[in-house]
Design a binder for these strands. Sequence first.
RNA 1: GCGCUUGUGGCUUAAAUGGAAAAAGCGCUGGCCUCCGGAGCCAGAGAAUCCGGGUUCAAUUCCCGGCAAGCGCACCA
Length: 538
Amino acid sequence: MRSEVKDIIEKTLKKTAEYFKKDVDFALLPCEKEEFGDFYTNLSFKLADKENSPQKIAEIIKQKISPNLKGIIKKIETKNGFINFFINEDIYRDHILKIFQNGKEYLKENIGNGKKILIEFVSANPTGPLTIAHGRQAAYGESLSRILKFCNFDVTKEYYINDAGKQIELLGESLKARYYQLKGIKCEIPEEGYFGDYLIDIAKKIKEVKDDKNFFVEFAFNEILQDIKNDLKIFGVSFDSWVKESEFIKNKEVENVLNFLKNKNLIYEKDGSLWFKTTIFGDDKDRVVVKKDKSYTYLATDIAYHKYKIERGFEIIINIVGPDHHGYIPRLKASIASLGFAPENLIVLIVQLTTLYRGKEKLRMSTRKGQFITLRQLIDEIGPDATKFFFLFRKIDSHLDFDIEVAKKQSSENPVYYLQYAYVRLKHLIKYAKEKEYTLEGNQFSIDLLNNDEEIELMKKVWKFNDIISNVVKTYGVHLLAEYLLDISKLFHSYYQKYRIVSEEKELTYARLVLIKSLLVVFELSLNLLNISLPERM
RNA sequence: GCGCUUGUGGCUUAAAUGGAAAAAGCGCUGGCCUCCGGAGCCAGAGAAUCCGGGUUCAAUUCCCGGCAAGCGCACCA
């Protein structure tokens, strides 16, 4: 396997470093340029001093390690002080044969070891439809979850519903106003309320007003939450668990956790409110948890919520949020630290905003004012797969400019179709081969016939899959997988154009079909991890 | 004013504890369909990585200082 090869080289290098009697950090990294080989190390730079140039040391190291790496390494070159390794191509051939035989199981990497992770994402307030920002978070959170699960983390996806507090009350009042306006009765939406047209549509659905002070709140809440769930379903995003903020108030968990903090002397009274000493955990100022009117702040219920996360035994807690929450992070870290959870195991991933353009026109968004393109509208316009891919293809820290016109206009040359087309081609090749009576079961294959440049390059790329995945896990950079898949698609399309896979030459055809099948495994898996659909035809 | 994030060809974006000549897509120029699906392929033009310093054998990457953009700085969520 891939990592074993790397390990052997690494260990051999380490031994050599000891010979030089220096304790240095060095890297073993993939080469950027083909001609440099597959891996290089900078060890010689680290060991160099006034007496010994990197070039000289590289040469010595090469001589020392060469005998130990026979079989794995085809040749070792030194150039400008770098030591370059060329992997024996049989390693690649063996790898694709294993994938051919064992499918995606062979690509699994046990990074997580069953560790329990909670991923909370989207968690949009049920006061309006999902926006583009939520869409980006949803696409990212879903894909990240899938990848972590594949790497043997025990993942739970959770959506936190803010159904308590001032915002939800304003929602109720806004709906009430819309309802009476429809009846021709003058009634103003509160200044801070929600002005979006969607509340008019919801108001139209009200047949009869029940005599309950929560009627409008509940009606709006239920309708909107239903819409949110529906949009997520269309987007292919699902949750294992839905948690309501109001529950923590109802079951006294907020009260309990505040008492707990009070006993630890972390709560004090000032100006008629209760304050939480977040400063002792590094926040810039203390924060109110119980307001003058005795109601809880968002932070108060959130502490209870995070206590609930911890109690369920999660070792890593990931919160995916928008950039408007960044100032909130120290408070949250303070909260969980005070509950005895290591703050570094709370990982807050901030997904930057997307700016929508329609050509030159920048589309400004405001949920409250009701001026926005919803996620649903975007999906309807350019399709769920293309939408997801646009989001996933960029790293989350980038402020994304998304031009709807471009996304639509280019739809046929959209990268996502390029990937899907590669998949369809692979699928079709297998089918075609079967029609030509090539059966893949129970055969011996001469895979050493896979020896042209394109085939070797493709096999190498397949070999790198595990590196990409572990990098994604390490950096939470889902976009790396999307990039990878685009690269490998390119290699494949090019290969396909140049060589005939299914031909009259039986042995060669079989060898190539092994490669095709292993590519298919990689594509199927990767598209699944990215949550992009696998079309049968296009 | 303070904080977080970002600044890479015309446009949208990559670049794994700092490493060799910065990589793709779109757009542009010129080619390729009697052949497993042309939603494809091949070739080409196009970048001193926002500016100024610093650390290093080596900086898109790290540090300091600017400039610009987005977002925050609530007893809202």
